[in-house]
Structure formats: structure tokens, C-alpha cells
């Protein structure tokens, strides 16, 4: 397994199949990339509203729904003013012709 071990107990960003972004500390994972995130929050991007975070506490993400997991530079992250960022919602991974 191209392993997730280096990300354990690190703060990570998880992208999901329906185009959402979760942040949290990676507490665990398995072969099917099921994940456990602690202090999790969902970050909601919108084109006409400032970015906002919603706390979710401890959560399990099913492997099937995982697109990517990344670690990040906390300094850069903390110095980013998300209230000034407006972005389109990501597409899901289904790629239907009609949204």
C-alpha cells in the first residue's frame, strides 16, 4: 500500500467523491482507505459567499468516498484569509452530462 502512515496524527485535508473538503487529524485508516478524522470540520466554498467551516467532531469517512488525502503547511494555511476566498464547488467524480 502506497501508505498513509506518514499522515497519521497529522492535520490533513480530505477531498471526497461528492466534491467536499474535510479537514481533521488523521487518527486511523485501513486498506480500503476508510479514514477516522478527529476534530473534523467541513470547509464549504461558495462563489458568492465567504468560505465557512462547519465542525463535525470525530468522523469516519468511507474509503469509497475518498478522492485524496493531503498534508499541509500549517503556517501557510494559518496565514490564508479564507474569508476573502470565493470558489466554485468542486465537481463530483460521476461526470454526468447534466449537472
Amino acid at each position: 500500500m502506497s501508505t498513509l502512515k506518514p499522515f497519521l496524527n497529522e492535520k490533513v485535508k480530505v477531498l471526497t467523491a461528492d466534491g467536499r473538503l474535510l479537514l481533521g487529524v488523521l487518527e486511523g485508516f485501513d486498506r480500503t482507505t476508510n479514514l477516522v478524522l478527529s476534530s473534523a470540520k467541513e470547509r464549504i466554498f461558495s462563489i458568492d459567499e465567504p468560505t465557512k467551516d462547519i465542525s463535525m467532531g470525530l468522523c469516519i469517512v468511507r474509503g469509497n468516498e475518498v478522492v485524496s488525502i493531503s498534508d499541509y503547511d500549517e503556517q501557510v494555511e494559518d496565514s490564508t484569509d479564507y474569508s476573502k476566498i470565493f470558489a466554485e464547488k468542486l465537481k463530483d467524480t460521476r461526470n454526468s452530462l447534466i449537472d
Partner: peptide, 12 residues
């Protein structure tokens, strides 16, 4: 902006 500050990434 989902990828702000990202260093390395694991892609399923």
C-alpha cells in the same frame, strides 16, 4: 483553494 498549503497528496 481546497489545495492551499498542500505539500504532498495521496490520491485514491
Amino acid at each position: 483553494p481546497h489545495f492551499v498549503a498542500v505539500r504532498s497528496v495521496f490520491i485514491r
